[in-house]
């Protein structure tokens, strides 16, 4: 981390300080170890004190809002286009739009969020709830498409069997079709969530890019998110923030790996052949 080739006047740590550090090291009073403070504190102007807890909590809150909003809508929408409901011009228009929405650049969703949630509805800037809604809109098409594929993969004969013994439409869906489609829906949802977790651009537009020291305590308090935190830190000149940036990237990647791994596991575990 500390390079002695850099001239002293370009460093924050003077030669004298390095000498002190060396003596402390020699006495065994300083050593390098796991930095728990990184996970237990919020952002700071001082690289030494900056942590990712604020961003992590912000991300988790945002994801929570996204999930709560997405899953029922996604599954409902996925199921709606099947079964008894007649196909008409409206369902066709919605179908086309779902497929197209999946290809809209994410920054456009940020603009949409800014215009609708902040300016029109006057929801709190930089908050997890707005971030969650914007990301929900962003990943909804992905989840709908995945849910629909999973629901379609359940043979209609299962639904007919349920109806045949006198189950209502709802019972057939909730007792049979949906549970059988659940692994597929979960896989799609987790991948959608992983996508949302790594998404930065739309959050910049709704103000989640601010420098926020406090760990958010509610869905409406100002917060930032993990990828935005990385973006902010990567822009700072201090050498120590480079390390912080790398560490935050590792944390983000770890989450993404874990989520994708879980998705693969679910698919492998519950994959069913008919």
């Amino acid at each position: 981390m500390l390079t002695f080739e850099t001239p002293e006047n370009e460093r924050r740590v003077g030669d004298q300080q390095i000498a002190w550090l060396e003596t402390l090291k020699a006495k065994g009073l300083v050593d390098s170890g796991f930095n728990t403070g990184f996970f237990t504190s919020g952002d700071s102007r001082e690289a030494e004190q900056a942590g990712i807890l604020g961003a992590l909590v912000g991300s988790l809150m945002t994801m929570f809002v996204t999930l709560v909003f997405c899953l029922p809508v996604g599954v409902g929408r996925g199921d709606l286009s099947r079964g008894v409901r007649a196909k008409n011009r409206w369902t066709d228009i919605i179908e086309i739009n779902i497929n197209n929405l999946a290809a809209v650049p994410s920054i456009v969703y940020g603009l949409l969020g800014l215009a609708i949630f902040l300016n029109f509805f006057g929801m709190p800037r930089s908050s997890a709830v707005v971030g969650g809604f914007v990301l929900a809109l962003l990943v909804l098409p992905t989840i709908i498409i995945a849910s629909r594929a999973a629901l379609k993969a359940v043979p209609p004969s299962i639904r007919e069997a349920a109806l045949g013994v006198g189950a209502s439409h709802q019972q057939a869906v909730f007792h049979h079709t949906l549970p059988l489609a659940m692994p597929g829906i979960m896989t799609g949802t987790i991948i959608g969530m992983a996508h949302a977790l790594g998404e930065t651009a739309p959050l910049l537009l709704i103000g989640m890019v601010a420098f926020i020291v406090d760990v958010p305590t509610s869905f409406t308090s100002a917060t930032t998110a993990l990828p935005v935190q990385i973006y902010l830190w990567s822009d700072l000149p201090e050498v120590a923030f480079q390390a912080k940036t790398s560490a935050a990237i590792l944390v983000l990647l770890l989450f993404l790996f874990a989520m994708n791994g879980l998705a693969i596991l679910l698919r492998k575990r519950f994959e069913r052949r008919w």
Partner: peptide, 28 residues
């Protein structure tokens, strides 16, 4: 729903639920 309880149906292709034998019969 009541009608379908009175009029059972067996389909062309066997379509048991992907559940236990017991659950298949017990569902109705």
């Amino acid at each position: 729903v009541q009608l379908r309880a009175r009029v059972g149906m067996v389909f062309q292709k066997p379509n048991p639920f992907p559940k236990s034998i017991y659950e298949n019969v017990a569902y109705g």
